[in-house]
Design a protein around this nucleic acid. Sequence first.
DNA 1: TTGTGTCTAGTTGTCTGACAAATTCAAGTG
DNA 2: CACTTGAATTTGTCAGACAACTAGACACAA
Lengths: 238, 238
Amino acid sequence: MTHFPFQRLQSELASLIAHTPGGQRLPSEPELARQMGVSRATLREAMRSFETQGLIRRRQGAGTFVVGQVSVMESGLEVLESLDTMAKRQNLEVTVSDLQVEKMFADQDVANGLIVPLGTRVTRVRRVVRAEGRPVAYLVDTLPEEIFRPDDLPTSFHGSVLDYLIHRGDPLNVARANITAIGATAEVAKSLEIQRGDVLLHFHSQVYDKSGKVLTYTFSYFIPGYFHFHVVRRVGNG
Amino acid sequence: MTHFPFQRLQSELASLIAHTPGGQRLPSEPELARQMGVSRATLREAMRSFETQGLIRRRQGAGTFVVGQVSVMESGLEVLESLDTMAKRQNLEVTVSDLQVEKMFADQDVANGLIVPLGTRVTRVRRVVRAEGRPVAYLVDTLPEEIFRPDDLPTSFHGSVLDYLIHRGDPLNVARANITAIGATAEVAKSLEIQRGDVLLHFHSQVYDKSGKVLTYTFSYFIPGYFHFHVVRRVGNG
DNA sequence: TTGTGTCTAGTTGTCTGACAAATTCAAGTG
DNA sequence: CACTTGAATTTGTCAGACAACTAGACACAA
């Protein structure tokens, strides 16, 4: 079943990339194509696939570079904590960039997520989390305006909606997170400085207060490799 | 930043794919390339990216098809249950194929996962789970041979190692699952009938018995869209 | 009728060669 | 030293061609 050059190619390229230190440049495309015995067009299709997986990055005029792994953030999913808290716990330095706070009205999706009527006034908070300067996560919180108004934004606000709510003393209770894997959309790709379609871990979660009301509805996008999420599962009929 | 044909293309193609019913064929590559005003080479790179995301599937000689979503399996991660159990609970029909049981010796990775000495005799169980005929998950269990010998395989064994252990009355306790997103490796891609590098949700988990011993070390690969995994998270400072 | 083999038009897979656009870096210039 | 220029290198895109494969139509024999 390995008749096609494309499949041989992927195998050899995967090995080459795995054995090349992060940040280092790969041979040029004409050079690689000759080495692997395929045309540049076929090589480029394979490269596109690896780029979609986030393993390499291509820059016109400069070359193709292997993306290296950096330190990972480890978290148990049973406990809800902000990335900031999570990073502090592990002595990692994270920064927040591209912070955007805006007013909007709930569309169907937001209305379902927050369990509010369509058209309700809501506040949306978007931000990019960076580790060692590189984007590693993109977070979009949407909250009812009665919970959080852009004007309320204190100077101490450093980007974590969760930390802010906790610090403010809101009666948070639990969160429900849906977990899946997706390819980056245009908006997410731009924010995370990756290509549309690149592999991402995606959480799609709601934070409830003690009365069962939804305080915030959050979309989280994580670049794989920087995070280790784990969860403890009890046996079914236990 | 949208100067390159490739980026315009991805946007238009994403829309086209989203608006095309599942299972339906897209226009041929020369036709599409003309419509979108790009060369076939550029079009194919974009197509490769969408194929990597699992949104389309290309078949030489036949055409390019949009893969449609089918019914989803919903599961809370707090409770450990087999896909079989999970499907039954929701009246979905799943089948198991490509069941392979083999003996091997623990390599470094398996030894770490099972917490046994390097070279310990282990049993590996591989299988593909299908819903509506299509592969949706690929599972690889590795167990110490003292827990599970291939010869022990009862006729009732239908592919679920977990269900087997539970039914046998083993004192299962908890499982720890690590969650991430990855691109498919060659082995996984072949089993799931997708392309190497396609987006997958990946669990990497261990099941412990009441004494803290690891009973099985499992790699699970899920094609996104067929599953809804969720988890309830408690607020940090409870 | 049913099944089988063959043919053909259409589709994806790959190749070759070329040019455009961006980057890098060294040499030149004030 | 700061800035410009220009050549070499590298990725982005294009055009056209042929090979490999698929699906459907068709003829023909059982």
